[in-house]
């Protein structure tokens, strides 16, 4: 981590009445990073973004942007810009005026404004759209305009609130690529909020996983995926099997929580396997290259993903499961 993080939050809390939307959050985002804040709705990720933007003031704690204290600084004096989930394009202005809004405020001459607006529109691959009204654009185009408007000043940090949430699947995949390449070209820090783990895993350099107002884990996608810090992360990021301590003790000799990826579970004939690992197939679904089994063991349910056609359970559905001990990832409590 660089000496001066782009954004740092120390012990930041934001309470709404009795609700703790953010509870003592510590976070450092490095310069030039593509950073994801991931969590279910109500986990505090959006509040965190709004605190960085300045729309919300922390109840306690300190926000620093490139080392400067931003606590209590209005959003309009922070060199941080936001792409809103609903894009928030001004309906009474055309695209060019939307994009050049901040330049208009700074009294940049008209011709210069038009030039820079066109340049920003080119960056988001919408050249020549300046004269249109936001209402005439498709959802994907509106988002590009919102992006152009937010990057025209080359902010130090760009915040994106669920940037792909309102787009359909195909557009979403294109836009993922485009956001990444835009970030590389601009070299500015991107911070985005999402509830979609696959989006976070595929786009971000690092991910912070939020739950109930707290940051549970921060790390690179692979790290968060392979070594979740808690059963919550294991469940939310990917869909790991979560094994409770007494089960883990019975099969691996250690009384701790553990997670186990479905693709690391093997399914076999019951034979003379450890009785704790023998159960019954409750569902089976064909996924093309793989087959997914749901297996009910004594007291817990597990998922296994095996190569298609590699195994067919007997009519009574009785099977045993197996996995390497090294596939178990041990975790602390169920937060």
């Amino acid at each position: 981590m660089s000496e001066r993080p782009a954004v740092s939050l120390s012990r930041v809390s934001r309470h709404f009445g009795l609700t703790r939307a953010m509870d003592e959050v510590d976070l450092e985002i490095a310069e030039g990073e593509f950073f994801a804040m991931l969590g279910p709705s109500g986990s505090g990720k959006t509040t965190c973004l709004r605190v960085i933007a300045g729309f919300e003031q922390p109840t306690s704690g300190e926000v620093r942007i490139f080392g400067e204290n931003a606590t209590g600084v209005p959003p309009y004096r922070r060199n941080v810009n936001t792409v809103f989930q609903d894009y928030a394009l001004f309906p009474h202005m055309n695209v060019a005026d939307n994009v050049a809004y901040s330049l208009m405020l700074r009294k940049v001459p008209k011709a210069e404004r038009a030039r820079q607006a066109e340049e920003a529109l080119e960056m988001v691959r919408l050249p020549g759209y300046g004269a249109r009204r936001p209402a005439e654009l498709s959802g994907g185009q509106r988002q590009r305009v919102a992006l152009a408007r937010a990057i025209i000043n080359r902010p130090k940090v760009l915040l994106l609130d669920e940037p792909l949430g309102a787009l359909d699947l195909k557009l979403r995949e294109n836009m993922q690529e485009e956001l990444k390449s835009l970030q590389r070209r601009l070299g500015i820090t991107f911070v985005f909020v999402t509830h979609d783990q696959s989006e976070a895993l595929s786009m971000a350099d690092r991910i912070a996983v939020f739950n109930a107002g707290k940051v549970i884990q921060v790390g690179a996608p692979e790290e968060v995926y392979r070594r979740p810090a808690s059963p919550f992360v294991a469940d939310f990021v990917g869909s790991s099997n979560i094994l409770p301590p007494d089960f883990v003790e019975a099969v691996a000799g250690e009384k701790r929580w553990a997670s186990l990826r479905p693709e690391q579970v093997r399914v076999t004939e019951p034979g003379d396997a450890n009785p704790r690992l023998v159960g019954r197939v409750t569902a089976q679904s064909y996924l093309g290259a793989t087959t997914r089994f749901a297996v009910a063991l004594d007291g817990i349910a597990l998922h296994a993903i095996v190569p298609a056609g590699s195994f067919q359970p007997a009519d009574d559905g009785r099977v045993a499961i197996a996995f390497d001990r090294s596939a178990l990832h041990f975790m602390d409590g169920p937060a």
């Binding site: 931003a70 209590g72 922070r78 060199n79 920003a120 025209i152 080359r154 902010p155």
Partner: peptide
């Protein structure tokens, strides 16, 4: 593109802008 250098703009000078800041805080 213009590149703003400051991370946080300095407090405003004009009376109206100072008033706006004060109101924003309350």
């Amino acid at each position: 593109m213009s590149v703003a250098t400051e991370i946080i703009a300095p407090p405003p000078q004009s009376a109206a802008a100072r008033l706006a800041d004060g109101l924003w805080r309350r």
